[in-house]
């Protein structure tokens, strides 16, 4: 199990890297979906069943498809534009990675434990996290309306 998870983690990272590096937009979208899926698997491995499910449903399903759709709408060649500051970016990010990784390498905590069943999460969302939940619903609603407003055509 442990080694499987390690492999999945490795694949997630690789595909995430490929999202950034691949020239083709469609490829990077597909790599993104793959990476999301991997993360979902990681969720399931710690017993977060509900989250694992919505990870796959929302990210790989909704978000990934939306990304692909938008890529088809916008870029005719489907090619991404060049990157800038490749190496200085690597240096900076590497520096940050070093700085974060250095203290966290020694963490040896257990993860998981509690079962993230749907009913548990549902109960939690409607009790302790009720107000954030309601706020999120409003945010979603306004995001939908906003998005619709933004992409409406002026001449209609």
């Amino acid at each position: 199990m442990q080694s499987l998870m390690l492999i999945i983690s490795f694949l997630v990272l690789i595909s995430a890297l490929m999202v950034i590096l691949s020239e083709d937009m469609v490829h990077s979208a597909l790599f993104l979906i793959f990476s999301f899926g991997g993360v979902g698997a990681l969720f399931l491995s710690v017993g977060a069943q509900f989250l694992g499910a919505i990870q796959i449903l929302i990210y790989t399903g909704a978000v990934g498809v939306m990304m692909l759709l938008m890529i088809y709408f916008t870029s005719k060649e489907g090619k991404s534009i060049k990157r800038e500051g490749k190496y200085s970016g690597i240096v900076l990010v590497g520096l940050l990675g070093f700085l974060i990784l250095y203290p966290s390498i020694s963490i040896t905590r257990e993860v998981g434990g509690t079962k993230g069943l749907t009913q548990n999460i549902g109960r939690l969302l409607f009790s302790d996290l009720l107000i954030p939940f309601e706020v999120i619903s409003i945010v979603l609603l306004s995001a939908i309306i906003g998005a619709t407003y933004i992409i409406r055509r002026e001449d209609h």
Partner: peptide, 9 residues
């Protein structure tokens, strides 16, 4: 990012 790095350093 740079700021974060600096703070961390």
């Amino acid at each position: 990012l740079i700021g974060t790095i600096t703070i961390l350093i």
